[in-house]
Amino acid sequence: MYARSCLVLVLVLANGAPVAAGDSKARLSAREMLEKVDDLYRGNSSYGKMTMKVVTAHWTREMKIEGWSKGKQKSLMRILSPSKEKGTATLKSGNNIWNYLPKVKRVIKVPSSMMGGSWMGSHFTNDDLVKESRMSDDYDFKTTFEGKRNGEEVVDITCMPKPEAAVVWGKLVVTVRTSDMQPLSVLYYDEDMELARTMTFSEVKKMGGRRIPTVMKMVPADKPAEYTMFRYDQIEFDLKLKDSIFSLRNLQR
């Protein structure tokens, strides 16, 4: 699901051809808007460097991460700093996740019972890394608001999961700014229709040949003072990447 694609953002997972990021003044349909959001950070392959900042009630920390992705199935992330975690890497292949721990020089496969656990201390789970969905395919959607909010022309698109879709959310509300068709926020509701988390997008910049929001911030609804923020420092799309990058051998490099 898209939530998962937050991670997708993080993971820079590639999926299908990117949509041309033209600021067409022509009115886009709800489907086109969702597809644009779905494909914002996707490419056949990608490479990026980002900063992850996690703020919790007990600690705050920042990590620098570099990541590669190829197709929908494969991605590799490696922590560059801080020094305690430097070299720690996560390989995703299909539905499996392995972590490499340089301190003990061991590879660990994340067991299915731990997939709901936090990824590297963030507010994202390992499941978020693995699960894939597209709002435009897996959800029924309709425009539920059109007009000015906080001085900007916005459109709200409410997405309800299709009965057969394997998603955990009860509802998503995507807010898109009409002036440049950039996403502003996605609200995630659980199956009881309670707000579970809020993802906001900001600092739209040209990077990797596209105009994309370079900062994403996720706030869990039950802990409004906490958040995980990603900032892209660099991103490139559609590079030539060898499959061997996404191997257990390379994970341990």
């Binding site: 996690v54 919790t56 007990h58 600690w59 705050t60 920390r61 801080p82 305690k84 975690e85 720690t88 972590n99 721990l101 301190k103 003990v104 061991r106 660990i108 936090s118 590297m120 201390g121």
Partner: peptide, 16 residues
């Protein structure tokens, strides 16, 4: 045994 935990300061604790 490899132990991997989320440490109290948010870092990733791991040990053999």
């Amino acid at each position: 045994i490899v132990a991997v935990v989320q440490a109290g300061d948010g870092s990733l604790g791991n040990e053999l």
